[in-house]
Simulated scan of single mutants.
Amino acid sequence: MKWSGRRSSENFEDKRGMSSGGKTIIGGGIIGIVILLLNVFGGENGQMIGNILQQTQGSQNEPTEQRELSATEKKEGKIIEAILVDTEDVWKKIFQENNLQYERPNLVLFTDSYETGCGTATSASGPFYCPADQKVYMDLAFFEELETKFGAQGGDFTKAYVIAHEIGHHVQTLLGTAINMRKLQQGKSQAEANKLSVALELQADFYAGVWTHYNQKMNNFLEEGDIDQALSAAHAVGDDAIQSKIQGRIVPESFTHGTSAQRKAWFMKGYKTGDINQGDTFAEIR
């Protein structure tokens, strides 16, 4: 993935290197919360993420010290910022084409734990979008776990896919899709509510594909193997793949994010069409 030469973003917050003394993280790392949720990243439907963070957070103190980031960490930060910048430019263009105004979200990098509008995020939370403060939060340790524990390909475009998915949830917030979905979930059985959650997540994957389509036209940023990285990550975070790996059996009615095949298919539909109007993932459950 070609990322150098991008402008800086005022919406990028690098809080890595800050540490606090005396915090306790419950959940045993990303795998612990995966067992709880049977997903890896996402879970961004308002009250849900707040409840999840409440379950996984421990005591939290204010940062007591800050260390200098290594050269590798600084480079990682530049890559993440470049991806964020590209999402800002692409979605601004798409919204303008539809006579809408795009409001840019912030992206926060942290290590260990960080206070968010949805509660205390920890390294166990995985990347997520918080609608309460309209920010994306992530600890980059997630990507090592995604590769080593769940078999996803490593690489910069794996990060781009995940970030684009989370920004997709911000788009859903701006368009009112997320709040409408939460209203539809009210009074539904858990299985029916889960189907709506799956539709929301698959649409975020579709938006990640749309972003990739537009950004390729605008910046010619793709390199050989990039799309394969995205598909590998999408496969790794499918509900069926995770359930099979974690619990040894698949329970479709408990899916919240979609199968590996669905996630890959909706990403590719967005990438191939580049048409935001073709992402009605809710059609099948209306």
Rank of each mutant, 00 (worst) to 15 (best):
K93C: 06
G279E: 01
V40W: 07
A141I: 07
Q66S: 13
F282T: 08
G27H: 08
T72G: 00
Q186R: 09
A236T: 09
D228K: 02
K272L: 13
S59H: 09
S254F: 10
Y137I: 06
L184W: 12
V90A: 10
T122R: 04
S70A: 04
G274W: 03
N51S: 15
L107V: 13
I49T: 10
N99S: 13
G27L: 03
E192C: 07
G187D: 11
W266Y: 11
G42D: 03
L53S: 02
D240L: 07
I80G: 05
K195H: 00
Q66C: 09
G126E: 05
H235N: 14
G43H: 01
S260W: 10
Q96P: 06
N194T: 12
N194S: 11
A152H: 04
K2Y: 15
E103Q: 12
A233C: 07
K188E: 13
A204K: 00
V162F: 03
D275M: 10
Q66D: 07
K92W: 00
T273S: 13
G43M: 04
K149F: 00
I49N: 06
D275N: 15
K159F: 01
H213K: 14
H213G: 02
T56F: 12
D133E: 12
E13K: 14
G27T: 05
F41L: 15
L107P: 03
G77N: 08
L200E: 06
S197K: 10
E88D: 02
A164G: 06
D112E: 12
A204W: 04
G42Y: 01
P131R: 00
